[in-house]
Design a protein around this nucleic acid. Structure first.
Length: 437
RNA sequence: GUGGAUGUAGCUCAGCUGGUUAGAGCGCCAGGUUGUGGCCCUGGAGGCCGGGGGUUCGAGUCCCCUCAUUCACCCCA
């Protein structure tokens, strides 16, 4: 217990965490390019927020929330999705009084009590964007374009955009009734889950994977035949704007989404090689949500993207991501046991660090040979070697580990010389190891 | 919540039908003479064989329970 993490959680250690830092940086700068500003909301909220916003009939609210009473007797829930807290923050800060639309993005952990499997954790992380106050199809498309452009920049290629419209409450009511009429006579032939779905949310029968249900699903009425004129026109706009942007998508009339707040556009971006949980990014429009949360009627659209799944997809495709960062300079001392020598080493070490050169040295009392081995394993670019002999002449040996060459440099020139060498071609990620294979 | 698979050194695994001090490769640490890495050689440390109970003269090997990991269902990022 003491040495094992809770089920469905993960530790990110050096070597792995650099990938996340890189992706977060890329996502932030991309969002900035699209005019989105970052929002950071609490990890927990009042339980009522999610009950209201996500919907009582959803699996999330019914069985997946981490909910507990705090010491003041308030019911608190760890954020199971990112949209509701963002809406809450939008309303609480009265961002609707600012110039519209409001464009926000976030990078945050998400908690759901589920049985872990490939691509599913109890704590996972999402990148997300939300846009409030814009009802036009251009807004739907911009949100999809954030994800699309992100994947393009990363060099991720095998993704498929699934698109559908589930209409507004009015046309959905008609469709829902049609589905019920269609399935109810056949209810005894459907799987037990679908019989339940038929009562709770008939739309979800559509994405059942049970063999027995497939023949009926194939013949079931399609949403597009039930969209009202406005919803149909909106959906046509979304599709043509996506085409104009050269985004390839597949119309998926069985894409329904498990959250109650969606209206009109819904989409999911999947990676075919991810296993059963293959949705990397999903979202849609939620024109009634702000009002549901106590605001004025305000259109909204956004997505959430699973970072763990994104990393997995990138690795499947062999996209190179930063590896463990190494130090630039290692200081190796020959008379390691000598107190005075060690102090001279420390002086140099901190002189380098003051000049923002990443540097390290031995604290374990190792032999020079061991220090060299260690520096090699740590992938240090340079090793500074010195002992009494060099210091007597005010010099040190500067060894280039990749070249295997060394030269003498006067002690006072060391930081300047290193700074100059390291600045050549130095990107922020230049001293991360590239993944091998 | 349901079902399947798996749990032996830090890592990847071997341990045949139960039988003596549980092995390998890699990794780690130290050496290979006097101040220097990556190759090579030598040596060393390191294992409640996931945990508990049972069967047996004897269990890492068989049985039960439990926990964990993992994959799938439900659902979702």
């Amino acid at each position: 217990m003491l040495t094992s993490r809770p089920r469905g959680t993960a530790d990110l250690l050096p070597g792995e965490v650099e990938k996340w830092q890189f992706l977060e940086g890329e996502f932030r700068s991309l969002c900035h390019d699209f005019g989105f500003g970052e929002v950071r909301t609490p990890v927990f909220e009042h339980t009522e927020l999610f009950q209201r916003a996500v919907g009582e009939s959803t699996d999330i609210v019914r069985k997946e929330m981490y909910t507990f009473k705090d010491r003041g007797g308030r019911s608190i829930t760890l954020r199971p999705e990112g949209t509701a807290p963002t809406v809450r923050a939008y309303l609480q800060a009265k961002l609707y009084a600012e110039p519209q639309p409001t464009k926000l993005y976030y990078v945050c952990p998400i908690f759901r009590y589920e049985r872990p499997q490939s691509g599913r954790l109890r704590q996972h992380h999402q990148f997300g964007v939300e846009m409030f106050g814009a009802a036009a199809a251009e807004a739907d498309v911009e949100v999809i374009m954030v994800a699309w452009e992100f994947f393009r920049r990363l060099g991720l290629e095998g993704l498929i955009v699934h698109l559908n419209s589930i209409g507004c409450p009015t046309c959905r009511r008609a469709y829902r009734a049609a589905l019920k009429d269609f399935f109810e006579p056949k209810a005894k032939d459907l799987c037990t889950d679908c019989r339940e779905r038929l009562e709770l949310n008939p739309l979800r029968v559509l994405d059942c994977k049970t063999e027995a249900c497939q023949p009926y699903i194939q013949e079931a009425p399609v949403i597009s035949g039930y969209l009202c004129d406005e919803c149909r026109a909106h959906f046509e706009d979304v599709k043509s704007l996506l085409t104009q942007r050269k985004v390839k998508f597949v119309l998926d009339t069985r894409l329904v989404r498990g959250l109650d707040y969606y209206t009109r556009t819904v989409f999911e971006i999947r990676h075919p090689h991810l296993g059963a949980q293959n949705s990397v990014c999903s979202g849609g429009r939620y024109d009634g949500l702000v009002e549901e949360c106590g605001g004025d009627p305000t259109p909204g659209v956004g997505f959430g993207m699973g970072v763990e799944r994104l990393v997995e997809a990138l690795e499947i495709e062999g996209v190179a991501l930063p590896g463990r960062r190494s130090v630039d300079v290692y200081i190796a001392i020959s008379e390691a046991g000598d107190r005075d020598m060690k102090n001279r080493g420390l002086d140099l070490l901190y002189a380098l660090r003051e000049r923002r050169i990443s540097a390290d040295m031995d604290y374990l009392g190792r032999s020079l040979k061991s220090q060299m081995k260690y520096a090699g394993k740590m992938k240090a670019k340079y090793v500074i070697i010195f002992g009494r002999e060099e210091l007597a002449g005010g010099e040190v040996v500067l060894r280039d580990m990749a070249q295997g060459r060394e030269r003498r440099v006067s002690l006072s020139d060391v930081p300047g010389t290193l700074r100059a060498s390291l600045d050549v071609g130095g990107t922020p990620w230049s001293n991360c190891q590239k993944p091998s294979g």
